[in-house]
Nucleic acid binder design. Structure first.
Length: 492
RNA sequence: GGCGCUAUCGUCUAGGGGUUAGGACGGAAGAUUCUCAAUCUUCAAACCCGGGUUCGAUUCCCGGUAGCGCUACCA
């Protein structure tokens, strides 16, 4: 059921770049992860490369099936697809092989120190735990003996000490990077239960899958030095790296479910009525720019314009508020994309939402309502508040005072509605005809058109702000319109 | 603490040794209009600080500050 979907865009070339999105299934699909996926996908499509989805599920403790489902659900909604799919937990043999090879070369050592219990870390307030000489310098004999005796151990990379060695790489976004090996700790390759760590598994798979470009969050920028060391120890050529600035909350902190709630989950945007293409567009503009002032861009335009050079280096704020959970620009872009949809397309997307809310509406009715609200909704779900009166038999109660027109009184409202009833009962319910008839009616009564239309609008829609009156009447039809006017006549 | 990264309007960003520092969202005002929306016009709004280099720095260099990241047998 989780089959990779065929990707859109140019077909991949056999010798094109290979990129991967490698989420760890420990939660729902995060907006930051979605953006990373999108940038990888864009890069792959732009360069006729291959997009790979790899579940980095080596943390048995925290992985959940629900999370795997949530990630697929989110990715499916984005509708971008991928070409190959792997699960890290099914490749453990490969990881252990690489660990063993590194160990055989003497570039890693067994660490018999018992694992630190979760909380009690933060030990060396004075300095970093770079390495433990006792374990690092353990003799082969003793190391073998203790291992043979079944004592558990973690396998650690033997990072060069006092060698003056600098580990370097060139990041496509952040430029030349260098770090003294002395500042890199002896990180773990294998846990004492034999499971590979993220660093090992990730590098082993990247090498094995012939990943050419690693495009991922900037939180991995400093980890990359360790990865270079691993690739080197395994005799593999490191891929190219491109780190992405992070998405952060308005206060600059990183987005977290606990602190910021559902706005960090992709499904929240889907459920609120974002168009996937608008959401993708929005995310692209966070930390990347086409540099030509374009904002609204289609998928094709994004693919065409995308390049690593356009990626920015500073973190980007997702500008949400407590009262206003979505970034205003995301909402605006969504409205922009909605307006760009054909009536048929929009109507089809609206229908399930309207039905889901309990309204009994058929496709042809929806198709007639859609053009009246297309420019009035920002999120798909807005259809429920913008067009509800089209879908109900009876209007919910409203304040009769609303029927009174500007600079008018209850008597005028009454006069207008009575006249409207008479006119509408013998007018063809068709937009231009209705307009002509009602304008004439206003003239008859010697009032302004606004004063004429407003009471009718409220009587028929139950509110002051609504789509244009004549189109609305046409869609509503004579029976419903007259019944509602009749009902309004009982009110004041 | 150590190491690394970053710094242009409130937010997303363009730019780059000499510019009226550009665009967009949001905000304000106005036009249009049967209300709302859409659309159009206008306005307010920014180069973190301090030193250099230079005839000239927002731009280049250094320092500071602030923010973020890594510093787990998480990823």
């Amino acid at each position: 059921m989780n089959d990779p979907k065929p990707s859109a865009g140019l077909p991949a070339r056999a010798n094109g770049p290979r990129v991967r999105f490698a989420p760890s299934p420990t939660g729902f699909l995060h907006v930051g992860s979605a953006r990373t996926f999108i940038f990888n996908w864009l890069f792959a499509r732009r360069n006729r490369g291959t997009m790979i989805l790899r579940l980095d599920d080596t943390d048995v403790e925290r992985n959940t099936e629900a999370s795997v489902n949530s990630i697929f659900e989110g990715l499916r909604w984005l509708g971008l697809g991928w070409d190959e799919e792997y699960k890290q937990s099914e490749r453990l043999g490969l990881h252990r092989q690489m660990a063993e090879a590194i160990f055989q070369k003497g570039l890693a050592y067994r660490d018999f120190t018992p694992a630190r219990s979760g909380e009690s870390e933060q030990s060396g307030a004075q300095g970093t735990w770079l390495f433990n000489p006792g374990m690092r310098e353990l003799s082969h004999e003793e190391s073998d003996r203790r291992a043979a005796a079944g004592e558990p151990f973690a396998l650690r990379y033997r990072v060069p000490r006092n060698s003056g060695r600098e580990v370097r790489f060139v990041d496509a976004v952040y430029g030349a990077q260098a770090k003294l090996a002395d500042d890199i700790e002896d990180f773990a390759l294998l846990r004492s239960d034999g499971m590979p760590t993220y660093h090992l598994a990730s590098c082993a798979d990247d090498a094995d899958l012939r990943i050419s470009h690693i495009i991922r969050g900037q939180d991995h920028l400093t980890n990359t030095f360790k990865h270079i060391l691993i690739f080197e120890a395994a005799g593999a050529t490191p891929p190219q790296f491109a780190h992405l600035p992070l998405l952060v909350a308005p206060d600059g902190s990183k987005l977290s479910k606990r602190r910021h709630g559902p706005v960090v989950s992709v499904t929240t945007y889907r459920d609120a009525g974002f168009l996937p293409e608008a959401f993708v567009n929005f995310l692209c503009l966070l930390g990347w720019s086409p540099k030509d002032n374009r904002e609204k861009m289609s998928r094709e335009e994004l693919v065409e314009a995308f390049s690593l050079e356009g990626i920015n280096r500073a973190n980007a704020v997702v500008n949400f508020k407590e009262e206003d959970p979505f970034d205003p620009k995301a909402v605006w872009l969504n409205a922009e994309h909605i307006r760009g949809l054909t009536v048929e397309d929009l109507s089809e997307r609206l229908l399930p939402i309207v039905r889901g809310a309990g309204f009994d509406v058929d496709a042809s009715k929806m198709l007639k309502v859609t053009p009246l609200i297309r420019e009035r909704i920002k999120l798909l779900r807005d259809v429920l508040t913008a067009a509800d009166f089209f879908f109900v038999g009876q209007l919910p109660p409203y304040d009769p005072a609303e029927l009174i027109p500007q600079k008018g009184d209850a008597a005028m409202a009454l006069k207008v509605l009575k006249h409207a009833r008479d006119v509408l009962s013998q007018t063809e319910f068709q937009h231009p005809v209705l307009e002509e008839a009602l304008r004439a009616a206003a003239q008859d009564l010697g009032i302004k058109t606004g004063q004429m239309f407003q009471p009718i609008r409220v009587a028929v829609c139950g509110r002051k702000n609504a789509p244009p009156l004549f189109e609305t009447l046409e869609v509503l039809g004579r029976d419903t319109s007259l019944a509602r006017i009749e009902k309004a006549l009982q009110k004041p």
